[in-house]
């Protein structure tokens, strides 16, 4: 896919987000020089000054769409990008700001801002894939820098990135972590959550918070039943499903089932 004699041009774009996923890119301290050697980092506002115009071989898109302006801007990003990769929960599921999707946005704006009339925002926070075709989604809140390097390495040699869509449970079992739900009675989203973090929280005796969003083939209602058995109340379960990936379809549906 790379033209001889020219390094692929890479861009990093920011939409509604906390910048944490872009910072994961800068956290690749040991690999950063190799990345800069392999690709031409042509647009990266977090790390450099002055945008460069043109087209890009690969665009990493962080953040969700929350304004009419961003809804137009993502179309231009797509037009300029040969390959578009979304990075993080905001870009793949709307992020924590998708909590607005379940509430009255005008009420929020009036409570939060001294001069609400200056705020122009959409009623929802939505994923990039709701607006333009996405070639690859890298999950996480924030993304795992090892997985980011893997996506770039895979892109460079034209292979499929190894970012399995199975449960966090598999990561726990691979590392030999004792199941916090079975052995401690700790509520955990691991059985419905996409792998990628290396089972970080269960490794520290915490339940999974679902930062990587739903795994393939989820069964949220069955997990809800077990969480109830462990003593989690209905409102607690609703909030459990409404965090960084509240807008991801399986989590959204199950949380809405808990509203009535």
């Amino acid at each position: 896919m790379n033209r001889p004699g020219r390094k692929p041009r890479l861009a990093v774009w920011k939409f509604a987000s906390c910048d944490g996923c872009q910072l994961s890119f800068l956290d690749c301290e040991d690999e950063l020089l190799d990345i800069a050697g392999a690709v031409d980092i042509a647009y990266f506002p977090e790390a450099m000054r002055g945008p460069i115009r043109g087209t890009y071989d690969v665009s990493l898109v962080e953040g969700s769409i929350t304004t009419a302006g961003d809804a137009k801007r993502i179309q231009r990003v797509r037009q300029r990008s040969r390959t578009l990769v979304t990075i993080g929960a905001c870009a793949t599921a709307g992020g924590i700001q998708a909590l607005r999707n379940f509430a009255d946005i005008d009420a929020f704006v009036n409570v939060v801002y001294a001069s609400p009339e200056y705020i122009a925002t959409l009623a929802t926070s939505t994923a990039i894939a709701d607006h333009v075709p996405v070639d690859f989604e890298l999950r996480g809140c924030p993304i795992n820098k090892v997985q980011l390097v893997e996506v770039i390495s895979a892109f460079l040699c034209g292979r499929r990135p190894v970012t399995p869509a199975h449960s966090v449970c598999i990561e726990c079992k691979l590392r030999g972590t004792v199941c916090v739900m079975v052995a401690h009675g700790t509520p955990c989203l691991g059985p419905v959550t996409h792998a990628g973090c290396g089972a970080l929280c269960p490794g520290y005796n915490r339940g999974c918070y679902g930062c990587y969003g739903p795994k393939e083939n989820t069964n949220l209602p069955a997990l809800s039943g077990q969480l109830a058995t462990l003593g989690m109340t209905r409102p607690e379960r609703l909030r459990f499903y409404r965090s960084f990936n509240a807008g991801a379809a399986p989590f959204q549906e199950e949380s809405q089932r808990h509203e009535s």
């Binding site: 190799d34 390495s153 460079l156 190894v162 598999i170 079992k173 059985p191």
Partner: peptide
């Protein structure tokens, strides 16, 4: 839940996959 815990803890389950990695250069 199709979480795969049963197969991971099973002392006879032997299935594996292979994964390839390559460096940036």
């Amino acid at each position: 839940l199709s979480c795969a815990n049963c197969t991971m803890v099973c002392p006879t389950c032997f299935c594996s996959t292979v994964e390839d990695s390559s460096d940036l250069a």
